[in-house]
Computed example of a mutant assay.
Amino acid sequence: MQRGKSHVSLKDIAREIGVSISTVSRALNNHPDISPEVTRKVQKLAAELNYTPNPLAMGLLKQATRMIGVIVPDLVTHFYSSIISGIEDIAEQKGYYILIASSNETLQKEIKAVENLMKTRVEGLIVCLSQETKNYEHFDRLINNNIPLVFFDRVCRTGEVPSVVVDNVDAAQKITKHFYKNGFRRIAYIAGPDHLNISQERTQGYISGLKSCGLGFHPELLVKCNLSSKDAIKATAQLLNLPERPDAIFGINDTVAFAAMKEIKRQGFRIPEDVALVGFTDEFHSTVVDPALTSITHPTFEIGQEAARLFFRCVENPEAKATQVILNTKLVIRKSSVK
């Protein structure tokens, strides 16, 4: 065998010494069935070759890979990267690794990600749904086979699958009341697709927030987009071109809010003097755009931690009832919404 090979396997060591792979594995773990002489020989060669265990291979021998698949809509935004860090924090404490895949906001890529991660023998999945996902058959197969599964933020099958969300209704109410407190009365909301729980819940909070402020609901002030910047710009233009335009807008997430900011400025309106603006998720860019964007901030790291804790509860107690953890958000006020 070539010395200095980058990846030395149990098979390489077994071949060089002339014993079976299982003998090498047991010798490395000081199993009493293996003679002291063979154990010394195996461990000496392993040290010389800088052998390190492959967690996937070791897991397959034990029928447990100690790996968790994580699927997110994108890998660019701080929102998801911070949640992934929270998942990883708890996973490491348990001696687990994570494998990450992105759906790029498409159902087909989400289905493929589920297939590919399961092929690598992950023990289960932690998932945030893509914006296209209305059919859940690819997850039903996991549920029916008792494979650990947890959803976060955008969720489904909540009666059967544990999940972590924020109080979206309360968050949207906070925004609406904040606008009202600062003198805005024609408050508009750019929502996402109807089937997403976050869109439904934030719409509910928006409407109830208007009611609590004594404002009527005007259907023309509630518009929808597919969460892309291009579609959000169209939605913003639709609002600004109304005979009686809104004096305040909030978006379902910061991507939508940044697109709205671009269109508001393009049409020559001032923020917040002509149109106030609030986002949702508090991405890093919120602090560097002009004016700085008021936004709802999520406890993203904690979301990840809670999702991982739910995952391990599934692993340890497969029969446990599905629970939902609901976390609180905070409205971070900046210049974009205060006259």
Rank of each mutant, 00 (worst) to 15 (best):
V169I: 11
V338M: 15
N226Y: 10
G214A: 07
R154F: 01
F258W: 04
L117W: 06
I175G: 12
I190W: 06
V315F: 05
E92W: 01
E137H: 05
H7I: 13
N54E: 03
Q43G: 02
L222G: 03
T39F: 06
R26W: 06
E273D: 05
F301V: 13
F139H: 00
T120G: 03
G183W: 07
A47C: 08
H285K: 15
L61S: 12
R185K: 07
R154E: 04
L56M: 12
Y51G: 03
A320C: 10
L45T: 00
E92P: 05
I175H: 15
R270G: 10
V127C: 03
L129D: 10
E132V: 01
V315I: 13
V8R: 05
K262V: 15
L331D: 12
I143P: 00
I326E: 04
G304T: 11
V325P: 02
G192S: 14
E110P: 05
V289S: 14
V127D: 04
Q238M: 11
I126D: 01
I83T: 10
K11D: 09
S6L: 14
M118N: 00
G59P: 03
N54K: 03
G183H: 04
Y51Q: 01
G124V: 11
R40P: 01
I233Q: 12
L210T: 02
G205E: 05
S22A: 11
L117D: 01
K211Q: 14
N168S: 13
I17C: 14
N144I: 06
T294Q: 06
K134E: 15
V161H: 03
I333Y: 06
T133R: 06
A292I: 04
K11N: 09
Q238P: 02
Y206D: 11
F139R: 05
R334T: 04
